[in-house]
Simulated scan of single mutants.
Amino acid sequence: MSDTGLPTALARELGSISAKLDNLHEGQKAHAKKLDSMDARLRTVEKRSALNGGIAGGVVAVSIALIKEKLSGGS
């Protein structure tokens, strides 16, 4: 028996489980970091898309207004 009163095999298994949990925790932190970087890139893409959509919508609206004005005889 070891100093803690646990059988050696049990202490070894607990140490193995603890090491595996530490490894899983490190992997989880790495995934969280990667997701955060993806989120930042996606946010940038979404902002650009919204800006481009707004500009395109404005151009189409002005174009339709000009076409409508030409077809109605400019009144």
Rank of each mutant, 00 (worst) to 15 (best):
L24S: 08
T8M: 02
V62G: 01
K34S: 12
L66V: 12
L10R: 12
V60N: 11
G53K: 07
E26R: 08
A61D: 15
S72V: 14
G73W: 06
G5P: 02
A61K: 02
D22W: 04
S75K: 14
S37M: 09
G73Q: 08
R43C: 00
L66F: 07
D22N: 13
S75R: 12
L35H: 04
A61P: 04
K29S: 08
G27T: 11
D22C: 09
S37F: 03
A50Q: 12
I17F: 14
S63N: 12
A61G: 08
A32S: 10
A32D: 10
S16D: 10
K20F: 09
L24F: 10
G73H: 06
V45A: 06
S63Y: 08
H31C: 03
S75P: 04
L51S: 11
G53R: 05
L6V: 11
I55S: 07
D22F: 01
L6I: 09
L24N: 05
L21A: 05
E69C: 07
R12C: 08
A50K: 12
E69S: 13
S75D: 11
E26P: 06
N23A: 15
N52Q: 09
K68L: 13
H31Q: 14
A9Y: 11
H25P: 05
A56P: 02
S2C: 01
G57N: 08
K68Y: 10
G57A: 12
R41P: 02
D39V: 00
D22P: 00
K34L: 13
G73S: 01
L24T: 06
S63A: 15
S63L: 12
K29Q: 05
E26G: 01
S49H: 09
T8N: 03
E46H: 12
A40P: 08
R48D: 00
